[in-house]
């Protein structure tokens, strides 16, 4: 068991989500940055989908009741155990009574704290993921608060200590250039509008959250109105509202909506987008579907090559 001494800015329990409920209006939830989430679990010897914490900007401070291990990945958040610095991105063995603090992100937005064994909260519709707007899953369907306790399943010290290889996640271009597949309604925009979308730089606005990232940049002009007959919104759907500004819809998105969608950010880019701090910018580029599927395969394969044993 762990006891939350300080919850951080917005810390929730997540697993890989609850697909299959969108037709009832319930989004999948799950981690914003799947790669960082999976690597945290693998560092402590868990299955990829074990429940872990997603922290936002500022992480939690907590006390462990029993010996075990954790790993922190994702945003670059300073981690201390009983006040001593430990390196992020590696297996951290813990003794009973250890005090862990996950600090403020120096880079990135979302950090993940995985616990050897995985967190134990009740399943809701087959998943432990928290959907705060729907008060579903996680711990009572909400973000963590001071004094909360969370059970850890079969806590144990992993035999093998591992770390994320240096350079396993290359920093890439700045601002990040996110691959998108145009459509489903790219034909509802003018040529100038599409050029603006693919040529412009878009700043992430502070109102962004797990539902969607709101952006501000060159106007993406509609050819004939911004309304469509409401239809399903895919993960990464780039909805363009009346003022020509885009919103990228994410893991806690509404299932349907009535605004035109110029493009869809590729699934393997969602995690990069989720790590862009408000005020920073992104750019978009178009890829064809075959290239997107190939890039996704490589991205999945890169998980297997990202870790190494600590000797």
């Amino acid at each position: 068991m762990i006891t939350i001494l300080q919850p951080g800015a917005h810390t929730t329990v997540q697993d890989l989500g609850r697909p299959g409920q969108l037709r009832y209006g319930i989004p999948p939830s799950g981690p914003m940055d799947v790669r960082a989430f999976v690597l945290a679990n693998r560092l402590v010897g868990n299955p990829d989908g074990a429940a872990a914490l997603e922290c936002t900007i500022l992480g939690p401070r907590f006390e462990t009741e029993a010996a075990g291990a954790i790993a922190v990945t994702g945003a670059d958040m300073p981690v201390t155990v009983n006040g001593a610095d430990v390196a992020p991105g590696q297996t951290v063995p813990l003794a009973a009574g250890d005090l862990v603090k996950v600090g403020t992100a120096r880079e990135g937005v979302r950090g993940y704290v995985a616990f050897a064994g995985g967190l134990d909260v009740p399943f809701a519709l087959g998943s432990r993921a928290t959907y705060v707007r729907g008060r579903l899953g996680g711990l009572e369907g909400r973000a963590l608060r001071r004094g909360d306790t969370l059970a850890v399943l079969g806590a144990r010290r992993p035999v093998v200590r591992r770390r994320v290889k240096p350079g396993a996640a290359p920093a890439g271009a700045e601002p990040p250039e996110l691959a998108t597949v145009l459509g489903p309604q790219d034909d509802r925009f003018t040529g100038e509008g599409l050029e603006a979308f693919l040529g412009g730089t878009y700043a992430v606005l502070p109102q962004s959250d797990r539902m969607g990232v709101r952006l501000s940049g060159p106007r993406i002009a509609h050819a004939r109105g911004h309304d469509i007959i409401s239809d399903g919104i895919p993960l990464g759907g780039v909805q363009v509202v009346g003022d020509g500004q885009p919103i990228v819809l994410l893991v806690d998105r509404q299932s349907t909506g009535g605004y035109t969608k110029v493009a869809t950010v590729c699934s393997y880019e969602i995690g990069r987008l989720a790590q862009v701090k408000p005020g920073r910018s992104v750019r978009f580029r178009a890829v064809d579907l075959a290239a997107a599927h190939e890039a996704r395969r490589q991205w999945r394969a890169s998980f297997d090559d990202a870790l190494e044993d600590i000797r």
């Binding site: 597949v181 459509g183 489903p184 007959i229 399903g232 895919p234 759907g237 869809t264 590729c266 997107a292």
Partner: peptide, 29 residues
Amino acid sequence: FRPAGDLAVSIELEEEISAEVNTRVRALE
């Protein structure tokens, strides 16, 4: 059929709201 990213496809039947079209959507599902 329109790709909706790398994990979904949008199948648009018609450009209208009607019982007939919505029935076909649900029947296809």
